[in-house]
Amino acid sequence: LKAQDGPEGGVIRTKILLLGLRRAGKTSILNVLFNKLPPKQTFFLETTIRITKHTFDTVIPLEIWDCPGNITVEDLGTSLSEFSSLIFVIDIRDVYQQPISKLVEFIIAAYHDNPDINLEVFVHKAEKMQDEDKLENFRQIHERISDRLLDVSPDYELNPLDLHLTSVYDHSLHEAFSRVLHKLIDSLPYLEELLNIFCANSSSPKAFLFDTASRLYVATDASPVDQQTHNLCCDYLQMLNSFGSLYRSKSPTAATRLKPPSPSTPTPTASSSRH
């Protein structure tokens, strides 16, 4: 998982294109995931008017392009082959033509320039709807995208499209983004196998390997992911990240004196017992 050195000694970043109509929630998503913005504060974010490139160091170095809502393929100023993934954000209440046309326009262009690109759709602001309506809108959005693609050409059906229900107000966003990330990690099968072995040997029911700062999971064992368990792990990491600063030594003398003899990685652990 080492970052590779780029041409000028910089790291090579995996590029992700983030698209969606204006006010769909793109900038909110990035800020909640990577800048610790409290979800309620996203209300005060300003509309993105030009392409903004954000670099984030998760387990792999990322460069995410936050685009204004009215962007076209030409406006990108670069080829779609540059990007490993395309995430399209749709407001869940927006089941109509406009966002879907935009998405289809990009899918067709991507199919031409970069057929291997991972296509991800975040059906966003999902917390706003009751479970039943939520699933109905999700299904409708999925169906309309597939229909539109089929209209253009039957081939497009071959390119798999991954849809996720997301919201900045719960951990669904973290889970969805983790799944996006998994497709970009080359060593994923080895990590998964290691976690399978870990679970078997420690009789743990479930294991996640997390990137602690972003609270995204890098890999998990083969057993299915239960959303509640995933949420608890995210809550736990949130607590752990806050704890760190509370008892961290602020005095320089004490800190140097008590430096660990060998550089050890933090190994956060927790236990809770079932009743």
Binding site: T269, A270, S272, R274
Partner: peptide, 22 residues
């Protein structure tokens, strides 16, 4: 965190945190 545990009907029991500095 106790509240998060109770949502899973897990009872909070104890915590061990080994962080970089403490």
């Amino acid at each position: 965190f106790k509240h998060s545990c109770s949502r899973l009907r897990e009872e909070f029991h104890s915590l061990e945190m080994e962080l970089h500095e403490f």
